[in-house]
Amino acid sequence: MTEDRPEELTEYSLSALMAAPPAPEEPADFDDFWHATFAEFGTGAVPWRRTRELDATATHHVSEVHFDSSAGEQAVAYLLVPHAPSSARRGLVVGHGYGGRSGPDLDRVPADTAAIFPCAPGTHAGTPSRFPSPPDEHVLAGIAHRDTYSHRFAAADIWRAATVLLEIAPSASDTLDFSGGSFGGGIGAMALPWDARFRRAVLDVPSFGDHGVRLTRPCTGSGEAVRLHLRAHPQVRPVLGYYDAASAARRVRIPTLVSAAVLDPAVDPRGQFAVYHALAGPRRLSVRAAGHLDGATGLLSDRLALQDGIDFLALPDERLA
């Protein structure tokens, strides 16, 4: 992290990580809170408009769209729709890491798929937001109360992005999937239980899993800002109980692939595996050598995880048994 404080590269044994931990403590009204949040932000029409056409690919029209965010501002998303929209057999909502995004990941989207890549509130450079964009600030924005925390609106905008996508490509309504990594993986876990439109999910090195464990260890990711903040403001710890990806995963019943790393300086591997162990439905595990790591090993791990996710979403239903 600095010359006098090297990166925390603790590597856990796979056998230890495969032992399911106790479920995180959670608020008694966890379900009520999230059902109410979905009722407020996840239902009904979502106004949107195309703001810019981007270079098309051989298979898709590509555009930038703005839609009404749950945060009361304009959200940015990138949209890929097959040249013949009615030919879209599958839909895909793609979350992003805490680095944000400035465009779509074209290699994630098969020819038969309509996809939307929403930017979480505050994470799109140049777009006005009440949330700050730096990860160490965004992860603390609104943390004083469960209703104002930035992660509530990030999860809600996953639902709203799905609404926009299905308005454009209704033929994909029965085959809507989610894929997200790191920040997007943790936010996806929080969003998925409450929205019955999703068919499958891929969560790659998901963050925010098992805060009770996650906050015990220094890291290079946004968790470090939270850990240090709680030292000065311990009264906000109960808020995190509503935003634990492992608690939310206990309610995820759709087939889900988790790619979890045994070594990760940014997202504690124990939290990643906690998300996998908590899943209530059909689940698959892809073990990564490393997550959030620069260099050849990190790049190879990223590429393998990406392909695992693409393959999982493309599997015929009968192969999931």
Rank of each mutant, 00 (worst) to 15 (best):
Gly186Lys: 04
Trp159Arg: 03
Ser150Ala: 05
Ile143Ala: 00
Gly180Ile: 12
Ser171His: 11
Gly185Val: 07
Gly181Thr: 07
Ala201Lys: 04
Phe178Cys: 06
Ala141Met: 02
Phe153Tyr: 14
Ala189Gln: 05
Thr175Glu: 13
His145Cys: 05
Trp194Arg: 08
Phe178Ile: 11
Glu167Asp: 12
Pro193Ala: 07
Ala155Pro: 15
Phe183Ile: 05
Ala189Met: 08
Val202Ala: 01
Gly142Ile: 07
Ala189His: 08
Trp194Glu: 07
Trp159Gly: 04
Trp194Asn: 11
Val202Lys: 00
Gly188Met: 07
Thr175Ser: 13
Val202Leu: 00
Ala169Lys: 10
Ser182Trp: 01
Ser171Asn: 10
Asp177Gly: 02
Leu166Val: 05
Met190Trp: 10
His138Thr: 01
Arg160Thr: 13
His145Asn: 06
Thr163Phe: 15
Leu166Pro: 04
Met190His: 09
Trp159Thr: 02
Arg197Met: 04
Arg200Gln: 00
Thr148Ile: 03
Phe183Asn: 02
Gly184Phe: 04
Ala196Val: 09
Ala191Asp: 12
Ser150Asn: 02
Leu165His: 06
Glu167Phe: 02
Pro193Met: 12
Asp157Leu: 14
Asp157Thr: 10
Ser150Leu: 09
Phe183Ala: 02
Glu167Thr: 07
Pro193Gln: 06
Asp174Leu: 04
Asp195Met: 09
Arg152Gln: 15
Phe153Arg: 14
Thr175Ile: 01
Ser150Ile: 01
Ala169Pro: 12
Asp174Trp: 03
Ser179Leu: 05
Asp195Phe: 10
Ser173Pro: 09
Ala172Cys: 08
Leu176Ala: 07
Arg146Asn: 03
Gly185Ser: 03
His151Leu: 12
Leu192Ala: 09
Leu165Ser: 10
Phe153Pro: 15
Arg152Val: 11
Phe198Trp: 05
Ser150Pro: 03
Ala162Leu: 07
Ser182Pro: 03
Asp195Pro: 11
Gly180Trp: 05
Ala144Lys: 05
Arg152Thr: 11
Ala189Pro: 09
Ser173Val: 08
His145Ile: 11
Leu192Ser: 14
Ala191Met: 12
Asp195Leu: 11
Ser171Pro: 13
Gly180Met: 10
Trp159Cys: 05
